[in-house]
């Protein structure tokens, strides 16, 4: 479904993605984790070409992203994206936020689009808030509307860019629940998140990144419990608040 072949990208001469090779199958749920500044979000944003890559190739659903002939709007219509700061349209109500793209891009009538939007709002548990403006919604509600907005295009792939990190701890679960149910329906998902619990529950594979490189790919237990790479070990132990048993330190003591 998504394939990275030797993708490189730099901002101001600083490499933020180094030789990324990754293949994601249909229906797979991939969680990308790693320290901030590791290039996780950039990697995610290259998938729908919000960030173009410098060289290498990305193939999404048979479309070559570096090909100038690729129709970007058609590509993006197939890829839903959920942002850290929700990015709902503040001048539109929840239901209008959801119906805008299906009506303008897919050409649905107002009635069809509204029906679809109501179904999605029900799915995320917000049908009673259909006529609320984003400012009237809590963070968690906004993010659920944002997810519904992406789903309204009936995408084949969903990208989540730290969907819960701008939320109050109490509101995180309502968003994660929606994501879990989405994963169970077989949606292809790429999720950048620090929610280890979510990753353990639904991820098929976890990608650990640091400094623009993919250091390790594996199943959740592989990465979280038995990481091989020393950098992964260090990161995981700090995430789980476990004192560091660093291989390097032990070696140094042996000297």
């Amino acid at each position: 479904m998504i394939k990275f072949i030797g993708a490189n990208k730099s901002f101001n001469n600083r490499l933020v993605l180094k030789n990324i090779n990754l293949e994601i199958a249909k229906g797979e749920v991939i969680v990308i984790c790693g320290p901030s500044g590791a290039g996780k979000s950039t990697l995610l944003r290259t998938i729908n070409k919000l960030e173009p890559i410098d060289d290498g190739e990305i193939i999404v659903d048979g479309m070559y992203l570096s090909d100038p002939k690729t129709d970007l709007t058609a590509l993006r219509a197939e890829i839903g994206m959920v942002f850290q700061h929700f990015n709902l349209y503040p001048h539109k109500t929840a239901i209008k936020n959801i119906t805008l793209a299906p009506r303008k891009v897919r050409g649905l009538s107002r009635k069809e689009a509204t029906e679809r939007a109501e179904k999605l709002l029900e799915k995320v548990g917000l049908l009673h808030r259909r006529d609320a403006y984003p400012v009237q919604l809590s963070g968690g509600e906004q993010q659920r509307v944002a997810i519904a907005r992406s789903l309204a295009m009936e995408p084949k792939i969903m990208l989540f860019d730290e969907p819960t990190s701008a939320l109050d701890p109490e509101l995180i679960n309502e968003v994660l629940d929606v994501m879990v149910s989405l994963a169970k329906e077989g949606m292809t998902m790429v999720v950048v998140t620090h929610e280890i619990g979510f990753a353990q529950k639904v991820a098929d594979r976890v990608v650990f990144m640091d400094n623009g490189e993919i250091l390790e790919i594996g199943t959740p237990p592989d990465i979280f419990v038995n990481p091989r790479h020393p950098r992964t070990k260090e990161f995981m132990s700090s995430v789980f608040h476990i004192p560091i048993f660093n291989v390097n330190q032990e070696e140094e003591q042996d000297f």
Partner: peptide
């Protein structure tokens, strides 16, 4: 905010449509 354009683009709207409606 820049995120508004990104959100509109990522739902498959063209630049022109994103400008006009968002």
């Amino acid at each position: 905010p820049k995120g508004q354009l990104e959100a509109a683009l990522s739902t498959g709207m063209s630049r022109y449509r994103a400008m006009r409606h968002v």
